[in-house]
């Protein structure tokens, strides 16, 4: 190869490689961008059953002709010394009416503990029609040793809930917080 062409080649190598390296950086950024994109996607489509993580303002607008079954599920993330259960397992509610129920949690260990409940709604499409005005899941819950407490949940099923949905299951998983930071 004569030096002429090799010099030209080197220059075009530089341009091309710069472009390719830029692609690498772009894709690295993209991998982190997937985190907020995923949340936004789920929020818009309500696909993964995530409910809002703060209280929402609602207006009562009771639809007396329709009833929806709401089921409550309580889980512990790991077999730690806790008691966690809903007060009632099932309620028949009218869309548009504010309802209240309780969940009971008890720290059965002899030390202070902090825990957090993470909600999930099935079917996922119902998540955005399930409004909570008050929920123990909005904040961390602190427990004294052997303390048990009733924790309130106030919610309303939106009258706009699609007709075909007759049953909504609301599940809480209780996570003990020690090492895990909160985002």
């Amino acid at each position: 190869m004569e030096p002429e062409s090799s010099r030209a080649e080197r220059k075009s190598n530089k341009r091309l490689v710069t472009m390719l390296v830029a692609m690498v950086f772009f894709m690295s950024g993209f991998s982190f961008a997937l985190v907020p994109l995923y949340d936004i996607f789920c929020e818009i489509t309500g696909l993964n059953g995530k409910t809002a993580d703060g209280p929402v303002a609602v207006k009562q607008n009771i639809d007396p002709d329709r009833t929806v079954k709401v089921q409550f599920i309580a889980n512990m993330n790991s077999a730690e010394s806790w008691k966690f259960k809903p007060d009632v397992f099932e309620m028949e509610v009218h869309p548009g009416k504010l309802e209240e129920t309780l969940f009971y949690a008890e720290n059965m260990a002899d030390v202070n503990k902090v825990a957090r409940a993470v909600p999930s709604v099935v079917p996922g499409q119902a998540a955005r029609y399930f409004h909570k005005t008050e929920c123990f899941c909005f904040s961390e819950q602190a427990f004294e040793p052997r303390e048990g407490k009733n924790m309130p949940l106030r919610f309303m099923v939106d009258p706009e809930l699609p007709e075909k949905i007759k049953t909504i299951s609301l599940s809480y998983t209780f996570f003990e917080l020690d090492r895990v930071a909160v985002k």
Partner: peptide, 30 residues
């Protein structure tokens, strides 16, 4: 070029979840 950086990003998030208190993949932390 398109996917190796994404993989590197994913395992980096695992690393920060384990050692630096982030909660990308931990439900308890959101």
């Amino acid at each position: 070029i398109a996917v190796m950086p994404v993989f590197a990003g994913a395992v980096t998030m695992l690393l920060t979840d384990k050692f630096f208190g982030t909660a990308f993949f931990s439900a308890a932390g959101g």
